[in-house]
Design a binder for these strands. Structure first.
Length: 489
RNA sequence: GGUCCCAUCGUCUAGCGGCCUAGGACAUCGGCCUCUCACGCCGAAAACACGGGUUCGAUUCCCGUUGGGACCA
């Protein structure tokens, strides 16, 4: 198979809730494919299910797409030459094309009631057969049809599928896939309420929007033969298909709410960086030829190929996502990271809602020295309190350390030295610490641990010279003073 | 139940008949670095579901079994 040019692909979510992580991956693969081939990426909202579709969800999806950085070239809030991009605004098109099929003798009205159909289905299911429509209304005479219509009996429109032969297609990730037509049966293309079912609406939309490649979840694979039949009946050129495997939870069932966070919004809340989430999602079912695990968008686009997409379902592994996210946190540009992390500090009350430039520059340094400890942005403030609190929490270990004479001497000498310098900078504090060794006669553990304990009340934490630099001269002296008092008691 | 899809370390995967004593990554365990924690670095343990073929030779191709998943206006 070769790529049709120019490539036009779409992501078509239903606005029935938040953007699911699985859908996000589908969107990502479409986006990568489009960008790799310099094609067009389209967002289409499939909101024909009036019962479950909501405007809020519609909005949420647009926001999530934006946050993920999956920019589309055509879409509901973007416009384009093939709109409208919400199915609810395209209902007339479905009716028009359904009627065309009726006129061509390829579809017919069906008056069967839901109860009748359900009973029929249960009977077949009980007999261990595929629940295929019997075709009861297929051979109704013209007179009978007219009579029933005149009587006001509601009817759906069904597409004729002859039971012989098979429909197959070349799937980009699965290879050849074939379905027997006898198991398909005449299916509905327009319901009695005038709504087009999924299978019909997608075909009309994809055909009219000139979609060249349909990249979607594996759950749609059994819909594909019906759609192919429709393309043929309508005289449209069918697109090529690629069915992505499912994302599973740890128990190997489809990823759902009971497995924990499943929406993009939840991951955003929890402090994952969009780049990290994208990176992880890409690796879930695709491997770059280079084998890189941490890979930039540009590099992903450059290397993306449907041929390297995995056929088998993948278990969502939060541990690996965490590792990737931690990686991005450690390597992200500090200015950008600070902006991204700011809300978490504000919520923790460490930074004001209208931060001053001093606050921001301090925060930047705080993040710089603590980013190595965390895997998500939300964990960041937990490591920052020693820089913001006015009353340290002392661990027993730290108290213990200050009880020795040598420790107290170290603190006193440090105090004297500190008073002698103008202000603390990374350089001065580094120098100061170096000189301390000669001045106190202590070194290593006996030198640094007491200082750490005195300044933070803890035995673990970031590099001392950075610590002192961020705290500043006044705060350091205050804390040393307090530590000495504590040591005496 | 029927149809369709899938099957390599716990997890994500590389592998497209000999390069495989099966490679990488996460997680796990051990060590190094270091005032400490974290980061980082080094190392260890860990898999081709099973049974038949095809072939000089199968993780790789075919069939079956088993297991898992998806779909069933």
């Amino acid at each position: 198979m070769s790529i049709i040019n120019p490539v036009r692909v779409r992501f078509a979510p239903s606005p029935t809730g938040y953007l699911h992580i699985g859908n996000a991956r589908t969107a990502l693969f479409n986006w990568l494919f489009a960008r790799h081939h310099h094609g067009t990426f389209i967002l289409r909202i499939e909101d024909t299910d009036v019962e479950r579709s909501t405007q809020e969800s519609d909005q949420l999806i647009l926001e999530d797409m934006k946050w993920l950085g999956l920019d589309y070239d055509e879409g509901p809030d973007k416009g384009g030459a093939f709109g409208p991009y919400r199915q609810s605004m395209r209902l007339h098109l479905y009716r028009e094309y359904a009627q065309k099929l009726v006129d061509a003798g390829k579809a017919y009205p069906c008056f069967c009631t839901e109860e009748e159909l359900e009973a029929e289905k249960q009977k077949l299911l009980a007999a261990g057969r595929m629940p295929v429509y019997s075709g009861k209304c297929r051979n109704l005479s013209q007179e009978e049809v007219e009579r029933r219509k005149a009587a006001g009996i509601p009817f759906a429109l069904r597409f004729k599928v002859d039971p012989w032969g098979s429909v197959g297609f070349q799937d980009w990730v699965r290879g050849e896939v074939v379905f027997e037509k006898q198991y398909i049966g005449d299916f509905v293309i327009l319901r009695s309420d005038g709504i087009a079912p999924y299978n019909f609406a997608v075909v009309i939309d994809d055909a009219l929007m000139q979609i060249t490649h349909v990249i979607r979840g594996e759950d749609h694979i059994s819909n594909t033969p019906r759609q192919l039949l429709l393309y043929e009946a309508l005289g449209f050129q069918p697109p090529q298909f690629a069915h992505l495997s499912m994302i599973l939870g740890p128990d190997h069932t489809r990823l759902s709410k009971r497995h924990g966070a499943t929406s993009v919004a939840q991951y955003r809340e929890a402090g994952y960086l969009p780049d990290a989430l994208i990176n992880y999602l890409a690796l879930l079912g695709w491997t770059p030829e280079s084998g890189q695990e941490i890979i930039s968008r540009e590099e992903m686009i450059r290397q993306f190929s449907l041929k390297r997409v995995s056929k088998s379902a993948a278990v969502f592994d939060i541990m690996k996502l965490n590792w990737i996210n931690g990686n991005y946190i450690r390597n992200e540009d500090i200015k950008k990271l600070t902006a991204l992390a700011l809300p978490y500090y504000q919520r923790a009350g460490m930074v004001s809602n209208q931060p001053t430039s001093e606050e921001l520059s301090k925060l930047e340094r705080v993040i710089q020295v603590t980013r190595g400890y965390v895997e998500t942005l939300s964990q960041l403030p937990e490591h920052a309190w020693i820089f913001y609190t006015s009353r340290l929490e002392w661990s027993e270990e730290a108290k213990e350390i200050l009880k020795t004479d040598s420790a107290r001497r170290v603190i006193k000498v440090l105090q004297e030295e500190l008073k002698g310098i103008e202000e603390i900078t990374p350089d001065t504090s580094k120098n100061l610490l170096a000189h301390l060794k000669a001045k106190t006669g202590s070194g290593g553990k006996n030198l640094y641990l007491p200082i750490r304990a005195a300044l933070t009340g803890q035995t673990h934490g970031p590099e001392l010279y950075q610590l002192m630099d961020i705290l500043g001269k006044e705060e350091c002296l205050k804390r040393l003073d307090f530590a000495l008092q504590l040591a005496k008691a």
